[in-house]
Nucleic acid binder design. Sequence first.
DNA 1: CTGAAAGCGCTTACAG
DNA 2: CTGAAAGCGCTTACAG
Lengths: 346, 346
Amino acid sequence: MKGIRQLAEHLDISIGTVSRALNGKPDVNEETRKRVLAAAEELGYVANQSGRALRQGTTNVIGLMIESNKDIVEDSDNFFLGVTRGLQSVFARHKLDLIMLPCPSDEDPYEYLKRMVARRVVDAMIISATQRTDKRIDLLTKAKIPFVSLGRSLSSSNSSWIDLDFDGVANSAVDRLVAHGHRRIAIAAPSNDVNLGYIFLDGYRRALDRHGIAYDLSLVIRAKTSEQGGYQVGHELLQLADRPTAVILIYELMAIGLYRRLSEASITPGRDLAIIGFREEPRAKFLQPALTCFRISLRDLGAELGETLLATMPAYGHFYPNRPRTMIWPLELVPGESDSFHLKAE
Amino acid sequence: MKGIRQLAEHLDISIGTVSRALNGKPDVNEETRKRVLAAAEELGYVANQSGRALRQGTTNVIGLMIESNKDIVEDSDNFFLGVTRGLQSVFARHKLDLIMLPCPSDEDPYEYLKRMVARRVVDAMIISATQRTDKRIDLLTKAKIPFVSLGRSLSSSNSSWIDLDFDGVANSAVDRLVAHGHRRIAIAAPSNDVNLGYIFLDGYRRALDRHGIAYDLSLVIRAKTSEQGGYQVGHELLQLADRPTAVILIYELMAIGLYRRLSEASITPGRDLAIIGFREEPRAKFLQPALTCFRISLRDLGAELGETLLATMPAYGHFYPNRPRTMIWPLELVPGESDSFHLKAE
DNA sequence: CTGAAAGCGCTTACAG
DNA sequence: CTGAAAGCGCTTACAG
């Protein structure tokens, strides 16, 4: 089956009527509609996307931009595939398709996004890994492409975003450790300019402040957000003259590397050093002792992202009225044994 | 910047010339071309994808279909993101873009593919997770959409594919274990109908045969290809009356679950039970003792997949002449300590 | 309820 | 080397 013309000829009616029947327009005889739908099904006709998009001025496709740089490929788990399921559950209601746009590792993410946007392959975008200031946000705003970012940014003054509650995580981690008697609490922070690092550190700093603990720059360890980074964190912890008794990690896979480095030094997590990891992650489940970390439903997050995005789109906004433009996504503490020891009171 | 018309007006030349200049056609004055390119850059003009595709009858987009069912989301690592990098490196040569098409978990993969194909969003497809017989292959063949599958299938009699060397892996695993004195060698096989399971089991069976070891159905343990599946495998191994001394795993993450189950039973991998895992995987690196497994370069595999696909496309085939239609992708053994003990001779 | 026609934004023979 | 025009496959006012 080629096009709508062939289908119309086969049915011996005009293409206009075929189109209206297929698109569920009301002004079509029910009998005709049935014949059209049956023939389309039988001949496997589906409207050509380009013809449709060109005429309608809308593609009915939402893009999820993925940055597949080396770090992400090797280290991130299928965070995006999880989120994808939630997004699709929302988009399906409106017959919108989700496609993933992987930015090649040797192309500048900004240029890639610019190209994709200008080509009009999608009606709206979801971006993530927002930087402290992020040119992509200005680009999308200026191009008037609806978008939502996973992660806020200094650039996102008027745009929609959902961000994980890094502040809350930092605070409850510090509170928990302090309650166990810890005062020297290190923190692993990302070495790049991703915005979440700033928020995380800020939360940590203010939490210490609440407990009257001085902020000590030597306890802030910059590392790659990866397993290797975690190993590195372990290494640097061991170098510290006055070794901290606890450490909070920013990224889920750091725990794996950290455990390994500690094990090499015969230091037992949860006994010699308290550890609180970040996101609960299937592949960190094996860790002994079990890692105290934070749980998140990727699917729910994806669904929320989807609705937040649709709320900003003229054609779908009325389905999602009064929706907040931004949202802090809570994480739930999952107690393990990696931070279960109490320091004896001095 | 809206369309080519605006750009042409701004330059005060015809849209035909603008198009030719932008598309690198030879019959354009160099001076004109420069002006056009400069203006396009300045105004951020990029051709509308729908208009282009409609006119050319080609989208210059290749689709990679992803099945994001629950198992894959939770357990697979970023296998696809790795392969994606290789694919993109090849496609970039021809200015082809790669998009990932995630099949919603509640939609039938066959119907999803059919829809995407009929809508003509891509010029060619890459599919994976081929089943023993796979209707998608017939669909794509009939629709005359160029495609390559990662994984062969009984259905792929004339189509292009690259498959991992499951036969080779099964053979070298058995050889290695037999050389260490093992005779009772269990194997974990997938519980679904994915084609690789058949090939893997077949290789295992013939390898046993070569060594004069009888094939024992009770040593074939069906499990989900996941961490949980590995745990399950461990569980069933422990139930066996005459416990095997070695086990070969079909899927990378099984090792994690298996180690855990064994640890619960105080059985030490590499001392009480020899284990050979499947693909080397960052997140299994921490396992103690180190897992003997097989290495693969996802990027190289992706590049090869890309070239194999392009070779089947009329417009690009001449760039890749004499390219085999199918290919078995070798894996390299990475010795660990999980299978290092030798059984004493009886 | 249906058909005929316009036009979305491009590329590409075709004239000149 | 450039311009004018056709047409890719659709959807949608507009007539009837």
